[in-house]
Design a protein around this nucleic acid. Structure first.
Length: 417
DNA sequence: AAAAGGTTCAACCGCCCTTCT
DNA sequence: CAGAAGGGCGGTTGAACCTTT
């Protein structure tokens, strides 16, 4: 019970990690990747169980962790996400690059809960405390938290952590925007039985990017905060530093999309995604940008691709193969790198994720040819174009993986229905 | 200055799910 | 198909640190 096979027998160390242990773990994972966690302690020379190593790495040693106190924006985002996702800390963390589920959980339990209560908000229901108390009297004790009024609560009664930063208030105190009708028509997600929490989140997403909205929103004007890389289970930092100039740019020249999405948006590539060595050596690809042109994500005059991509990411995990024993290398452990080509072939950037799908079957059942055109460019101009044509076969596999994770979306929202 | 109480956060525990055999 | 193994997640704990008295 409880104990994992990796923890049995020999007396393993517990408790706080020493700097020496940290160093051993970092060295090992940096060189070889973690591979099978249960074998890490042995290979790294640690008297720890694999689980402990995993935890230490994920929560503390990972190079892409953002340390330090949470910003107001982050706190507000956590509150928003918690209203929708509940205590799904890992999913919340996925939307906060550089933050771990443990960290967020701790913050919630130690700080945010308290602040909400001080504001008269029940942290569990995200409703005013008085209302929550009323409901508790009226409903059975087993009734799960209803988020039906989440948006109302936040729009009319909350201005979180007010004080200096009025912009932050705008996020939650903004009017509850109506989702676009055309989005409702075109998005299968919107056709699902309406749940307020679901709509709330959609609304929030749309509001924060709706150019015509009268709401001033402090959310970054790009999509980066919604396109999380946290879930990419790529390997360790193999010596790459984050190049601030390395970013992906999504763009569309289709005017039909402009009412929902900006012309383009960009975000930094994760540090470990590296330019493909196979690319022509005379064409350095860093810095570079990748453009998606002529999105076919637009349908019914509106784009849902980004909304879909968001939901995709919400429950979607894609990882490059963990550190594996390479047959070519005679079983030698090879580092886990993700080349930019592999990255761009990921479901995340696949035609499927860019394609506007109407029904789940569309995604799961067939590989649609997306007209999304990739152009990899650097300062000197285009390097590679029309990548997608080489990816058709992989699209199907991607869709299969994708479908599995997409199935989690209803579950994620189901608790509120 | 020291004790008591409160807070934070790293780490562990136990369970669940997926994959492998 | 069943059981084992491994990974992941949320809840909980407890040591370290901070604040108050």
């Amino acid at each position: 019970m409880g104990g994992h096979s990796c923890c049995y027998k020999q007396k393993l160390r517990k408790g706080l990690w020493s700097p020496e242990e940290d160093e051993k773990l970092i060295k090992h994972i940096t060189r070889y990747g973690h591979g099978c966690w249960s074998s890490v302690p042995k290979l790294a020379g640690l008297q720890r169980c694999g689980k402990s190593c995993r935890l230490r790495w994920i929560n503390y040693l990972r190079p892409d962790l953002k340390r330090g106190t949470f910003s107001l924006e982050e706190e507000n985002l956590i509150i928003e996400l918690h209203a929708v996702l509940g205590n799904r800390w890992s999913q919340i963390a996925a939307q906060l690059p550089g933050r771990t589920d443990n960290e967020i959980k701790n913050l919630w339990n130690s700080s945010i809960k308290k602040k909400l209560r001080q504001k008269g908000i029940d942290p569990n229901t995200h409703k005013p405390l008085s209302e929550a108390a009323d409901n508790q009297e009226k409903t059975s004790p087993n009734t799960k938290t209803s988020n039906d009024k989440t948006s109302e609560t936040y729009s009319s009664e909350l201005s979180f952590f007010d004080g200096e930063n009025s912009d932050n208030q705008a996020i939650l105190a903004s009017e509850n925007p109506k989702p676009s009708n055309s989005l409702r028509q075109s998005s299968n997600l919107a056709d699902a039985p309406p749940t307020s929490a679901h709509e709330f989140f959609l609304n929030r997403f749309l509001a924060s990017h709706d150019q015509t909205s009268s709401t001033t929103c402090s959310r970054p004007s790009d999509f980066s905060s919604f396109l999380s890389f946290q879930q990419l289970n790529y390997g360790p930092n193999t010596g790459l530093s984050t190049n601030p100039n390395t970013n992906l740019v999504f763009s569309t020249n289709d005017p039909k999309c402009s009412d929902i999405v900006p012309d383009h948006f960009s975000f930094n590539l994760p540090a470990r995604i590296k330019p493909d060595r196979n690319l022509p050596s005379d064409n350095p690809v860093s810095p570079f940008s990748t453009k998606f042109q002529n999105w076919e994500a637009c349908d019914n005059g509106i784009s849902t691709s980004n909304v879909n991509t968001f939901f995709e990411n919400n429950g979607f995990q894609w990882g490059a193969a963990d550190c594996v024993k390479s047959e070519k290398s005679g079983g030698e452990l090879i580092p886990e790198d993700i080349k930019i080509t592999e990255y761009l072939q990921s479901p995340f950037l696949q035609g499927n994720s860019l394609h506007n799908y109407q029904t789940p079957e569309d995604i799961y059942g067939e590989t649609k040819s997306s007209q999304a055109l990739f152009t990899l460019t650097d300062d000197q101009g285009p390097l590679v174009t029309n990548w997608h044509t080489n990816q058709q076969q992989q699209s199907f596999q991607a869709a299969e993986i994708y479908s599995k994770h997409l199935q989690r979306i209803p579950a994620a929202f189901g608790q509120f229905s």
